[in-house]
Design a protein around this nucleic acid. Sequence first.
DNA 1: GTCTATACGCCGATAGAC
DNA 2: GTCTATCGGCGTATAGAC
Lengths: 201, 201
Amino acid sequence: MDQKQITSDKEKNKDVKNQILQSAKKLFSKNGYNGTTVRQICDEANVSLALISYHFGGKENVFFEIFAPFRLSFMNSEFDLSDPEQDLIRFCRMFVMYRYEEKELFNILQQELLLKSPRIEMLKDVFLQAWEQLRIILLACKERGIIDNPPVDMAVNFVMGTLMFSLNNPFLNPSNVNHTSEEAADLAVNYILNGLQISST
Amino acid sequence: MDQKQITSDKEKNKDVKNQILQSAKKLFSKNGYNGTTVRQICDEANVSLALISYHFGGKENVFFEIFAPFRLSFMNSEFDLSDPEQDLIRFCRMFVMYRYEEKELFNILQQELLLKSPRIEMLKDVFLQAWEQLRIILLACKERGIIDNPPVDMAVNFVMGTLMFSLNNPFLNPSNVNHTSEEAADLAVNYILNGLQISST
DNA sequence: GTCTATACGCCGATAGAC
DNA sequence: GTCTATCGGCGTATAGAC
């Protein structure tokens, strides 16, 4: 099975598939799915145009494989709702951390959500879980009187808005460069807990 | 100058330019700029393909004209900073109201921001003002000790995140249908003020 | 497995009849 | 002003040499 050889040259040919996935992720994030061509991807990856079809069977499959790691990584963590407030905090913190780790991935996800693109159908199981998880946590908070003010539907939107959008914001003022993911997570958790009027423990 | 005639037929030919702009706005919002073709726009508008070039000189100019009303409508309101907290509330409320009025426009704007598309250069004067206005208001709040907790940069992002993203969220759970723009504005203002730990007046 | 060359459709834009 | 017909270019995908 070990077909790798020492290709010292410029260490390029390590793994073509990965190279393509990396380049595609970068370009999809920057220019969107429709704004990215397979030519660009292959150029960026320094591979030939034909290899996308050969290895993946088309542009769309490249897109889906980009999200493969996402399926596994952080969604299978458990929230037992015995302490919904702590669950909420943990959820937010995990989300922010993962968001910082995978900025490009979330940027793509956000674009696709905004477009309600046909592709999100295939990603439903990926992120719908997170969405639902949050809703369940907030419902539990409501039932136990931890939160009261906004309707749960709105609360979900506010929290997700803070988590997804607020931290993805080097728009014109690329100012949140100087925050570590830890600091950002703290600030976000704080803003959210206060926003929902949860007197922090 | 009055070249209009009674075109009873199906009331269609009222104004071709407007018809195109409306269709383009709808489609750009739904499928993105790159995901929308001039053919689709003209189909949707029930006009011939050639009319986009004739009336606007190209697809990109259609895009820019869509934002023309935005330039005028709500950015020229004044915030004198004599009471920054009230300014913040007013800013948020206006933003939400306008956002509800012009969902499609803001959807497009969000997409373009996310893509950092070359087109946002042309829109800078449109929305950068709002961005800066908010930053100025929040700076004033900070200086007077009204807010303290998050750095201003982050506060700007949180507030804008709440205003732009949270209320644009009929993702998979189209649940915020039952809120009027007034209710949504109240909820958002509340979440924001609490989030920034401003004890509401 | 990887390359070059090419097929073929759709894109935006325009020429020219009406 | 509005239409139909068409151009040149670029998009994805593939055939075939190596």
